[in-house]
Simulated assay, not measured.
Amino acid sequence: MTYFHARTVEGEFEAVVERTRAALQKHGFGVLTEIDVQATLKAKIGQDFRPYRILGACNPVMAHEALKMEPHVGVMLPCNVVVQQADSGVEVFAVDPASSMNAIDNPDLLRHAQAVGEHLKAAVRDV
């Protein structure tokens, strides 16, 4: 089992970030956090890095269900979706929540995480 869903698309980096936000919204996710890794590495350690953005995506209904099933699951939320510049275009990839939820002995939560993963996979596909 892979731990992420990915695809490479054509387009300007910032435009792909916005397309990713729109695809997430279409599938019920909002973006709670955004980390500009390129800017952070430059500011904190003076290192240049490729354009790399981490979006913390959350589907509030699905997150609420997961929290009702497992009170400590918040350590694994929100779901990270990354947009990075690659040689072949712009890569968009999202965590497969089922791979991390495998660490929790809760079959209902695992099934729920698989459903969340399908929504994230569809969002990545729609970018």
Results as ranks from 00 to 15, higher is better:
residue 103 A to M: 15
residue 51 P to E: 03
residue 115 A to K: 11
residue 43 A to Y: 03
residue 84 Q to S: 11
residue 42 K to E: 09
residue 126 D to A: 15
residue 44 K to T: 14
residue 114 Q to L: 12
residue 13 F to L: 01
residue 22 A to M: 05
residue 21 R to T: 03
residue 91 E to R: 15
residue 87 D to V: 10
residue 85 Q to E: 12
residue 4 F to E: 14
residue 6 A to K: 11
residue 27 H to D: 03
residue 95 V to W: 02
residue 101 M to D: 00
residue 93 F to A: 06
residue 34 E to S: 08
residue 48 D to T: 14
residue 23 A to H: 07
residue 113 A to C: 13
residue 24 L to G: 02
residue 51 P to M: 00
residue 38 Q to V: 05
residue 82 V to N: 07
residue 109 L to I: 14
residue 108 D to A: 15
residue 107 P to E: 14
residue 75 V to C: 03
residue 96 D to F: 10
residue 82 V to W: 06
residue 57 A to W: 01
residue 92 V to I: 06
residue 24 L to P: 02
residue 17 V to D: 00
residue 100 S to L: 14
residue 110 L to P: 13
residue 73 V to E: 04
residue 48 D to C: 06
residue 27 H to L: 02
residue 70 E to Q: 13
residue 1 M to C: 12
residue 80 N to A: 09
residue 51 P to H: 01
residue 69 M to Y: 09
residue 21 R to M: 03
residue 85 Q to V: 01
residue 74 G to V: 09
residue 125 R to N: 13
residue 65 E to D: 10
residue 6 A to M: 09
residue 122 A to W: 00
residue 74 G to E: 08
residue 50 R to G: 09
residue 2 T to R: 10
residue 49 F to Q: 07
residue 4 F to R: 11
residue 69 M to I: 10
residue 50 R to K: 12
residue 70 E to K: 06
residue 31 V to S: 04
residue 81 V to T: 12
residue 61 V to Q: 13
residue 46 G to A: 10
residue 87 D to I: 08
residue 1 M to Y: 12
residue 73 V to I: 15
residue 117 G to C: 10
residue 79 C to Q: 09
residue 2 T to D: 13
residue 92 V to Q: 04
residue 34 E to A: 07
residue 81 V to N: 08
residue 62 M to C: 01
residue 85 Q to W: 00
residue 73 V to H: 05
residue 55 L to S: 08
residue 24 L to H: 04
residue 54 I to Y: 07
residue 89 G to E: 09
residue 21 R to G: 02
residue 114 Q to S: 14
residue 118 E to I: 04
residue 35 I to R: 07
residue 65 E to A: 12
residue 126 D to V: 07
residue 100 S to Y: 11
residue 58 C to A: 06
residue 30 G to V: 06
residue 43 A to N: 11
residue 113 A to S: 14
residue 42 K to G: 04
residue 50 R to H: 11
residue 2 T to F: 12
residue 30 G to N: 08
residue 93 F to T: 05
residue 109 L to E: 13
residue 39 A to M: 08
residue 6 A to N: 08
residue 46 G to Q: 08
residue 69 M to N: 12
residue 71 P to Y: 09
residue 6 A to E: 15
residue 75 V to H: 03
residue 57 A to S: 04
residue 115 A to G: 13
residue 39 A to W: 07
residue 5 H to V: 04
residue 100 S to I: 12
residue 40 T to H: 14
residue 16 V to D: 01
residue 36 D to P: 03
residue 110 L to S: 07
residue 61 V to L: 08
residue 92 V to N: 02
